[in-house]
Amino acid sequence: MAIATRSKERTARPTTSLIPGSSRNSFWFYLLPGLALLTLVIVVPLLWNVYLTFTSYRGIRPPEFIGLENWVELFGDTTFWTSFRNSVAMIVAMVVVPTVLGLVLAAMLFDLIGRKFGGRLASFLRATYYLPQILPGVIAAIVIGWILRPENGALNQVLAAMGLGGLQGNWLGDPDTALPSIMVIMVWVQLGYPVVIFMAALQRVDPELYEAAELDGANWFQRFRAITVSIIRPEIFVVTLTCAIAALKVFGPIYALTGGGPGTSTIVPAYYAYSEFFQSQQVGYGATIATALTVVIAAVSIIFVLVQTRLERSEEAR
């Protein structure tokens, strides 16, 4: 995302404001309220939190400086590593599956259903896919959690009615099925977002390109890969990056459904930090987990942007 602003500025580096006769410095006044609030609500707490990672702090007596102890503990903490392993599962459920499925669905809707069955139907289906996205994450989780209730949940009842009672399970309470269940919920929540974005992006694709490729004997999949995917690559990057950040930050559904359990089978970094803050009262350690999560998110974003710039350059060189 940052790329857009940067490349725009590289082409021309204006040194005056857009209003003639107004010097650039006279605009600082308008930044004051925003920057003051940003400092108060983001910058100071962020630095404070980093300081807390070097302390032992249980919330009552003042923080006690302990150097790198929290960080050393963190690297040997199996729960912490489990939480990141579960983050990988969240990335599969919120980035990989929705992006791939979203690409295919968007192409299907735009290319085929929109063309042969009318745009109305295509946009109705798109709105349906998008529906779960509008819910607060916790409410979306509660909706599916209700279906997965162990004793009289809809899924178990339907399985029993179909004579498949043997497949019934305590979906969110069994360590083997809890994480896959959460993953299903996240796919359901996330799928509509790439579909909407990719469908908008597909409008840039020139239909004549398709017709030419069709005449050359390219089949649907070849056209999809060579034309569609390469033209909407910027959107694919944005979707994967924003979804990856969202996947690393997941908190609400875990809080509402499993509390990280059973055991640590569904724990994620955000929930682990929260439970250290407010349940174990280990504020210093909770701050360390949260800071580690921030570092991971920053690293992922930077890598994404670098890869994107490199790909764009090699594209231009071709």
Binding site: L52, T294, A298
Partner: peptide, 30 residues
Amino acid sequence: GIGRVRGRTWLVLLILLANMLPQEVLLYPL
């Protein structure tokens, strides 16, 4: 955008940070 104050690219990045951070990192100090 209009005033084009000095260092605006860095300022936008700094401001965008507020949106990308996991909120847990601000939670206890706030």
